[in-house]
Nucleic acid binder design. Structure first.
Lengths: 244, 244
DNA sequence: CTGATTCGTGCAATATCACGCATAAGCAAG
DNA sequence: CTTGCTTATGCGTGATATTGCACGAATCAG
């Protein structure tokens, strides 16, 4: 049995059964337990599974790809997307942040819209391909894996050289005192720059963001126009609420 | 036993049994193990199989359902993708052009490759999302709709600030006199810049590009390492040709 | 707390690998 | 036919990978 083949089999098995037990596999594959443990250790080092006492479990779901995260709250995201898309008028220049809500916004854009979209998310840019009359500007930089947006000095400089009519911003928390926040420091820096480069800032907020505060502040609540679904809390007086 | 005949037999056997063991094949075919290993090494370089310790496994990318390995025919693009993916060594910095062939290359990348990929194609960048250990640098600019790559002065400047080990370049024509060409002037400018920013240039050419010439020259044939499928024309002496 | 598993590491035996070199076979030009 | 070149092959050698075992530490179950 080839080593690489055995490892592939282990991954297959893990995918099929959800867990691996070292002892049983050693007997089944006719090798020593040490060999199996070594395999599991190496696969774990490659991030392909999580090592536990006695065997292994699937890789931790904490940094799963974005497309799996987009399952939840489909309807709320779609309604927010439609509302956001309606805000973009022909001829405008709009900065569009990354994220699944904004992907839904792209899906809701009219096919013949003629406007300029500026984004630092390759996912968003790729989704804009079918819109023949859109001008799309990509802001480059080092790609952050989790959120799939460009970050760093180059991105900062790219946004600094731009003036847009509107910025549609993604956040992870809206809090009465903390304001608009996000969980990554570098992301916060870029988002702050995006707000500065736009005349108006829009936030499309799913209900789970309301009242939450992440570590790094982007701006105060009063600096953005908030659009959300569900019940309006009393500390969000200016927000626009979509009914279900 | 002719070399080509033996290689064909190896591929047949791999297809039938799902794996190859070097030692057993040497005995069975009455040759030395070195010869078998040499064959496997060469077939791996053509992307037709994956070399592992002790033998070889099918070239099927790891994140594709491995059950259907036997019946699906690999297209020329996929084989070029596999061959191109095999060129990227861990730790390297690689400029990757846009286009469907390079999308196939991304599909063929090993899931745990640790390298730096630089691209001005948001489509390519988005496809790189699942590769946890890749560093991805996006070069920004105005997006050209047809080819979905960033162009313009910002893109030019972005590539100018970079030195990569390798550039995997897309072209629309390879011609004995016109060299490497493309159909858009601005694209040609950027591609020229990409070639200058890399130590080595690779072109993965589908057969329809061979002998074709578009309006704008990027570089001479001799400046790039050409990898293609099908019959080699006599004016492409240095190219590497993948067997069917 | 205690016994039993399981884990990680070091180690040695074996298998496999890549590279260089020499030999032999095939081939084309003279 | 001879010469020179290329290609394929086998072998030696040092390097690398894999495996099983021993042993002490860590972890789990009752």
């Amino acid at each position: 049995m080839l080593t690489a083949q055995r490892k592939a089999l282990l991954l297959d098995r893990l995918h099929a059964e959800g867990r691996l037990v070292a002892r049983g596999l050693a007997e089944e594959l006719g090798t020593s337990e040490d060999t199996i443990r070594r395999d599991l250790r190496e696969l774990a080092a490659e991030g392909l599974l999580t090592r536990v006492h006695g065997g292994a479990l699937p890789a931790s779901p904490t940094h799963r790809p974005m497309r799996e995260r987009s399952n939840m709250e489909v309807s709320a995201k779609q309604r927010l997307g439609v509302a956001g898309a309606a805000l973009i008028r022909p001829g405008q220049t709009v900065i569009l942040d990354g994220g699944t809500t904004h992907l839904a916004l792209v899906q809701a854009l009219p096919a013949t819209l003629a406007a300029t979209i500026i984004t630092h998310s390759p996912t968003i840019a790729a989704a804009l391909e079918p819109f023949a009359r859109l001008e799309v500007i990509v802001i480059g930089g080092r790609l952050m894996r989790h959120s799939m947006v460009a970050l760093g000095a180059a991105t900062q400089a790219g946004f600094a050289a731009i003036r847009a009519d509107m910025c549609i911003l993604g956040v992870t928390g809206l809090h009465p005192e903390a304001g608009l926040t996000t969980g990554d420091h570098e992301e916060a820096l870029i988002k702050r720059r995006m707000v500065q480069s736009a005349g108006e800032t829009i936030v499309l907020a799913t209900p789970d963001k309301i009242g939450a505060a992440s570590a790094f502040q982007i701006a105060g609540l009063e600096e953005a126009r908030i659009i959300t679904t569900g019940e309006p809390p009393d500390w969000l007086p200016r927000a626009q609420h979509l009914r279900a």
